[in-house]
């Protein structure tokens, strides 16, 4: 059972030119086993939506609600949200020098589960996850995201997704900057996660390419801080040929 419910979400950000409203009333419900794709032009607020749900301090929620299985997400700290079952795969994962991937993963898993993972099964799980994502075993001894290629960073995000096993995964432009082989590997990881019952996926992307590998149940067009259109997978195909122009000009009118 996992339902992420976003109602009339308003979010502002402080800029040099004053406070700017980025999200202008977002409604979205992600239920068990559903994959939602949010597509939209640059600057439409897609990433703001992802980071606001995760609780990034840069963003201020000025109205609306976000609940996960009825629990008020906006009342939770960043780490409480993760422990409640939310996961954000970031577009630009952050380097943490001197902290090994192995140490980081074990610390995160311990925090999420409330107890340290059993050593033997944990090592097996980590090695298994790395193998499925075609990552070299030496990877676990490197510092978190330090010196990683774009593809390595994204595979590392998906490895965390598989190991931490959240209820709802938000993938923020996980496809950007990936070559086709890496895109396939990453998509397979997301599909493995989806196969488990009770999982919700919110896939934020600029391009339709990744939707050939991860099939969405719903596609939303996001323009100027709110949903402009909703539909099934066919909407993605339509966007592929027509682009966002018609939605952008409608939003400006």
């Amino acid at each position: 059972m996992a339902t992420l419910d976003i109602k009339d979400l308003h979010v502002t950000v402080d800029t040099e030119d004053g406070t700017k409203e980025i999200l202008k009333g977002v409604d979205l419900t992600i239920k068990d086993g559903e994959t939602h794709a949010i597509m939209g032009p640059n600057g439409s607020g897609k990433s703001t939506l992802a980071y606001s749900i995760a609780g990034h301090p840069k963003y201020t929620v000025t109205g609306g609600s976000v609940t996960l299985d009825g629990a008020d997400v906006l009342e939770m700290s960043v780490d409480e949200r993760a422990r409640a079952g939310l996961f954000l795969a970031m577009q630009y994962p952050v380097e943490v020098p001197g902290v090994s991937v192995a140490n980081f993963l074990r610390t995160a898993k311990t925090a999420i589960d409330g107890e340290a993972p059993k050593l033997r099964t944990w090592v097996k799980d980590v090695n298994g996850a790395m193998e499925k994502l075609s990552m070299d075993p030496s990877f676990s001894q490197r510092s978190v995201n330090e010196g990683f290629s774009g593809g390595e960073k994204k595979r590392h995000e998906i490895m965390q997704l598989e190991l931490l096993d959240p209820k709802v995964a938000i993938l923020d432009e996980t496809d950007s900057g990936l070559d086709i082989d890496a895109l396939k590997i990453v998509s397979e990881g997301v599909n493995r996660f989806k196969q488990n019952s009770d999982k919700g996926v919110l896939l934020i992307t600029h391009y339709t390419r990744i939707l050939r590998y991860i099939t969405p149940d719903f596609v939303h067009v996001f323009v100027d801080g709110r949903m402009a259109e909703q539909g099934g997978p066919e909407l993605a195909e339509e966007l592929e040929s027509t682009g966002y122009d018609k939605y952008v000009s409608a939003a400006r009118a």
Partner: peptide
């Protein structure tokens, strides 16, 4: 950003 990244994985502040 480092703290946000780690905390978004469930790790306390």
């Amino acid at each position: 950003e480092q703290l946000f990244y780690l905390r978004s994985r469930g790790v306390s502040e």
